[in-house]
Write a protein that binds this DNA or RNA. Structure first.
Lengths: 122, 122
DNA sequence: GTAATATATGAACGCTTGCTCATATATCTC
DNA sequence: GAGATATATGAGCAAGCGTTCATATATTAC
């Protein structure tokens, strides 16, 4: 009933609730970290990108090989590679007219595998 | 130069390329698994959902407490909880007018933490 | 030089997503 | 019963996303 330092919780037990809310807020992931984390997962949230990473986990591949392997247009693959590059999940090297892409680090493979475990675990 | 069993790769070395493509295709994640995996990551690809899961990793919370903790509308939180419920990432129990949500299993926490490691690792 | 190949990218379009707002349902208090 | 509280949900809308198509750039072959 007393006004208190409550934020906006209107649950029946406002006092206790306020304390729980404040404690939760204190331990909550900060906004920046939450956004970064969401961004990381978002990079892996599309089937095409997942398949690209799956292909690259075997060996480096040029754009055309990726397109042929996934049976998708070169343009679609290039656009997705752009996204993956922005996220620093892949690196590339040029060789003549070809551009070979590879996974940027093994850490993303760990995350990838971790997701796979979850899928198989269900 | 020979037509071969090539799929659609037109790289200069079409033969070798075809072999690499076929080998890549063979080891590639199948479509269903790729989609499931993408779906799993997509569930974690939004800052609001990340923050909800972060809050629930501390303790179970009712909708209103979540809304207050994240300083978001009850409706927005409810909609996201619906999504998380669909993905079986949270479970809930009713107690009077309240509905308390909690993480559904520890496995999602592993994946969550794995993503955090990646973010901090960068 | 021209032609072909390999890749990147901008525009457009349809689909999805995350929010708000209004409202429905359920429970509790009186 | 009426009114307040807690949650869920449908409609609507603006923003984002993933593709295609057309085109630009770069390299190689001739």
């Amino acid at each position: 009933m007393k006004p208190g330092v409550d934020i906006s919780a209107e649950c029946e037990f406002s006092g206790t609730d306020g304390a729980r809310v404040q404690e939760t807020q204190g331990k909550l992931l900060d906004d920046l970290t939450a956004s970064k984390l969401a961004r990381t997962f978002k990079a892996l949230s599309d089937p095409t990108r997942v398949r690209i990473l799956s292909a690259l986990s075997q060996r480096e591949l040029c754009v055309h090989e990726l397109a042929a392997s996934l049976e998708m247009s070169q343009s679609a693959i290039s656009h997705q590679l752009h996204t993956l590059r922005d996220m620093r999940l892949v690196r590339f090297r040029k060789e003549g007219r070809h551009v070979y892409y590879a996974l940027d680090d093994e850490h993303i493979e760990v995350l990838f595998q971790c997701g796979l475990d979850h899928v198989e675990h269900e």
